[in-house]
Computed example of a mutant assay.
Amino acid sequence: MTQCILFVCLGNICRSPTAEGVFRALAEESGLEVEVDSAGTSDWHVGDPPYGPMQLAAKGRGYDLSALRARQASARDFTDFDLICVMDEKNRSTMEALRPAGNKTPVQLFLDHAEGTGPREVPDPYYTRDFETPITLIEAASRGLIAQLLRQ
């Protein structure tokens, strides 16, 4: 069964499109059949490509985000996806507020899938200006989640 996973951050121009692109690439390398998408909890950037400096950092690590476009998360995502991975607690709380009554789709911090100890939230590079650390964290969480899904 193909898993459908949604990655969520605030604006869907830095962290979540990077998670979508990284996860898709690493899943393909591992042979995992998965459908992925990304969304933002805000509507600020709907239709925009990922933030330029984020795209450059991702491209430098071998990930092409140029075809992705921002969209806003909705209640429908809870029926369209098997798992929703958020970048921070604020994103989790916003997504939980969208949850339809009775829906059981898990909403998890993405970094909870990374092995070892470390931060639980992916820092927002739009504000920190550090675009490399989020990619490293997203790669670690992607590898952990892929390993988990391959074991199922």
Score class of each variant (00 low, 15 high):
I13T: 05
L150Q: 13
L56K: 11
S16F: 12
G52M: 13
A75G: 10
C85Q: 10
R143M: 11
T128P: 08
Y127T: 07
L98R: 06
S42A: 13
F78I: 05
R151H: 09
A58R: 02
G118Q: 11
K59S: 04
Y63L: 05
G116Q: 14
M1D: 08
T2W: 06
P125W: 06
R143W: 04
V122W: 01
A147E: 14
I135F: 02
V122S: 04
D37F: 00
F23W: 12
I5T: 04
D64E: 12
F78M: 11
T79N: 07
D112Y: 08
N103A: 15
L98M: 15
T18P: 10
R69Q: 04
S74Y: 05
L111V: 08
G144K: 08
T2M: 14
P100C: 10
D82K: 02
G62N: 11
F81T: 01
A114V: 12
N91C: 09
P106H: 06
G144M: 09
F110T: 00
R92I: 13
T18A: 15
S74L: 10
D130K: 08
A73V: 07
Y63I: 03
A147V: 06
L137H: 00
R24E: 14
A97K: 12
F81E: 02
R129H: 15
F7E: 02
A141F: 07
L111S: 02
L6T: 01
G62C: 09
S74N: 14
V46E: 07
L26D: 04
D37P: 01
L65P: 00
L26S: 02
D64H: 12
N91R: 05
E139F: 05
L10K: 02
V8S: 02
